[in-house]
Design a protein around this nucleic acid. Structure first.
Lengths: 229, 229
DNA sequence: CGAATCTTTGAAAGACGTCAACATTGGTGG
DNA sequence: CCACCAATGTTGACGTCTTTCAAAGATTCG
């Protein structure tokens, strides 16, 4: 599944593509995409792009997970989003005309394909369905962030943790949730120590199971109740 | 400037339009827009659309200010954005295929024009420059919300208040900032009482002037320092 | 195996929210 | 135009959720 070389990964049989915004591409589009892009293997904790720099293209996540974050005044990360295979990252900056406002780096080993700005914008111009997909994606994220904001402003850390675990559950699917305590704390917007104490509580209440660094959700229903709306 | 009747407001000489996404429309486009839209006068504190309902079109703000907000578990508002004349609101839901995730209501008396979904989408299809403007706008907002999230998670209420005052200063331009204490608290994500205490501090420190319900920024430089990055 | 990193725990301090009482304001009807 | 009432704003006291700091325990990886 994961390819540690930097050899070209074909789009035509890419399982991740089928779930992505490129999912309904025709043969011709796929080959064009294949010609335009380049592929790379990323180690764990490797930066993909950095806040403040200028975007040169978009990244298509073939394999692995990526955190998207900003840094506050004192350099502390706030994780805005965790992307999984099939997601395209960095396209926001393609349209805003601004430098990146967020950074992205890998949470695990990843295979990531890169599509240059020119190629990507050309693709969008000539492909209304892709364009609509992008607009739908931008819009959905905008809605999600409104909820994220409200949660941060109004929910307790305990509620936010339950909420975050449910989201992480979706992202990780069958696999156990696998994040450092610090990353998880930076996702729900709290101190690492507070997160650890709450995880312990959740474990004692039978909501989750902890296997060293990996978490499993045991009682999803209760988490939903705690998380609230 | 403000028209309390519901009579049609022409786009061709609309000052707000010139600042909006419709700013570079040609004569023909403007007349089409004029034909498609309907205009309405809104009283203060009147809802424009409500979270959970289905979008039927977009709203173009000719005059006045509007708050965009979600409600948390206990019904408390979290203001996500404050729109001023020239802004188009509600277009996010036009593309996401979801019901509204936010509500909007007027903060003052407003003149607001409405453009039906079909008309708006047709306009976008046939007008690449408008489309690019929309995508740029969606992208910028997405970036702004990443910063909003980080501020909520990492800044103190004092810092967030300074930050918010600077934003409100931009929105209100020459006029004094004019919001209820509750709305302002719901914008920075704190309790009304906490906001009031901090406003008092800021006043005593000579950063702002308070005229009953209206605020003026006196010392912008210091506010920038307090607000941080 | 050992250094570096990550995790856990405890104790203490502080920021912020909540509650309750009171003051002010602004809009409405008489 | 004034008086009144509901809505909004203000203040104080208090409790608590969270953060911070410090130090000790695990884990991981070269």
């Amino acid at each position: 599944m994961l390819d540690k070389s930097h050899k070209h990964l074909s789009c035509s049989n890419c399982e991740s593509r089928k779930l992505s915004l490129f999912g309904d591409f025709c043969e011709k589009d796929i080959h064009e995409l294949d010609d335009d892009k380049s592929c790379a293997y990323y180690k764990k904790n490797q930066p993909i792009f950095i806040e403040g720099s200028n975007p040169r293209g978009v990244y298509c996540l073939n394999q692995g997970k990526v955190k998207v974050f900003t840094r506050g005044d004192e350099g502390k990360e706030q994780i805005i989003h965790i992307a999984k295979a099939g997601e395209i990252i960095g396209f926001r900056a393609m349209f805003s005309g601004e430098p990146y406002k967020v950074s992205a780096s890998t949470l695990e080993e990843c295979n990531i394909c890169f599509i240059g700005k020119e190629d990507f914008l050309t693709m969008i111009d000539s492909n209304p369905s892709l364009r609509n997909g992008i607009m739908r994606e931008l819009s959905k994220e905008l809605g999600d962030r409104a909820i994220f904001i409200t949660n941060l402003a109004q929910k307790t850390v305990r509620e936010r943790l339950a909420f975050a675990l449910l989201i992480l559950g979706e992202i990780y699917g069958n696999e156990p949730i696998n994040l450092t305590r610090e990353d998880m704390a930076n996702f729900i917007g709290t101190a690492t120590e507070t997160l650890i104490r709450l995880l312990k509580e959740f474990k004692e209440e039978g909501l989750i199971a902890i296997h060293t660094r990996k978490l499993d959700i045991i009682d999803k229903e209760s988490l939903i109740l705690i998380a609230g709306k």
